[in-house]
Design a binder for these strands. Sequence first.
DNA 1: ACCAAACATGTAAATATCAACATGTTTATT
DNA 2: AATAAACATGTTGATATTTACATGTTTGGT
Lengths: 201, 201
Amino acid sequence: MRVLKYAILGLLYRQEYSGYDITSQFKQEIGQFWSAKHSQIYPELRKLVDEGLIEFRTQIQGEKLEKKMYTITDSGRQQLLTWAAQPESLPETEKDEFMLKMYFIHTLSLLEARTLFEDQLRQRRAKLADLQRRYEQLMPVFVSEENKATPSDRAHEHKNGDRLPLQFNNPHLGHYLVLSKALAREQSYVDWLERHVKLFS
Amino acid sequence: MRVLKYAILGLLYRQEYSGYDITSQFKQEIGQFWSAKHSQIYPELRKLVDEGLIEFRTQIQGEKLEKKMYTITDSGRQQLLTWAAQPESLPETEKDEFMLKMYFIHTLSLLEARTLFEDQLRQRRAKLADLQRRYEQLMPVFVSEENKATPSDRAHEHKNGDRLPLQFNNPHLGHYLVLSKALAREQSYVDWLERHVKLFS
DNA sequence: ACCAAACATGTAAATATCAACATGTTTATT
DNA sequence: AATAAACATGTTGATATTTACATGTTTGGT
């Protein structure tokens, strides 16, 4: 159902991006939940322009490198909002090739199974650590719960910079949500692996 | 990388199945981690026959309904084992359209966001309950840890039926692993939703 | 006897996704 | 001055996946 279309519109809702920028965004946090290769992105941008949902202006980078900066149109904004507010039913399948292999565990020797399982645990722990690091980098953006009701005075405001409490209106809420969810997903994966690794020893 | 090929070979490793049976299997527990529609399965079965990885015999159901029962060949078994023992690197993206919408939360009103979030919580809780029910149905298949070291006597054996402890050699281990993992995944999802639902009230 | 649900197998067309091909510029480092 | 990494945009071909089209049988319930 053309999710990439809406992923691009959603990114352009806040600011203009080039195709390359969009590719880069998919390597950031949102890439945990949606992404596409540049070979899919460029044709999709073309299509969205044809449909009048986005527009671009060509900008010169350096001497002659042309880059196309895309912006969302009113029509694009409207279609984005319609999609975003629409509840979807859950996908029947959330694909995981490792778990498919686990279903076929009886095809493996104990040693092969242990090797596979321990490799997965190693990789998942590394990913978890990376997400934890990113989470700790993000959290200082938010004012802590205790401080949020404190009567504001100049000194306090200065100390907090532009930080806002973690509430609905916080412009970084989306970023926080995907990062905390990715972290929870990965923590759950590691926990499950740790609970079951003894089966192979 | 033709995962469906290996999913089918894996299913046929234990017993023969028709194309319809394979479709049905993907509606069972393994469907939480891999599945395909019948329109993808039938051409794949054809291809696997052409490659000599599976074979079939035609069986008559009732008066004239022909069904093709597929079995795995030695060559198929060999390719399955090669794939199954091979560690894979983690996917960069595990797609989740709902979380993509959450990243774009700022495009929604508080009411729209709450509606979307609460709908997701409702659906995830229902799925969790279903998985819990299935988990409780499966668990009696296993002998409890305390009983597994008990010296066996006729009465005891009869009481336990064919139940075996939850160990590497247990033929239901794969089934248990995918079900417990699906349960953990869903529990983690519900927990995360519950931790954050107050953002929208 | 009728009917619905489940059983059973396929094909066609559209869409989505990825790997590889293809080309060139800019920036930072050595 | 050379080079590597990052920036930047495309196309092509192969696969993977879904939706819709297409047809027919068997089983269980009323």
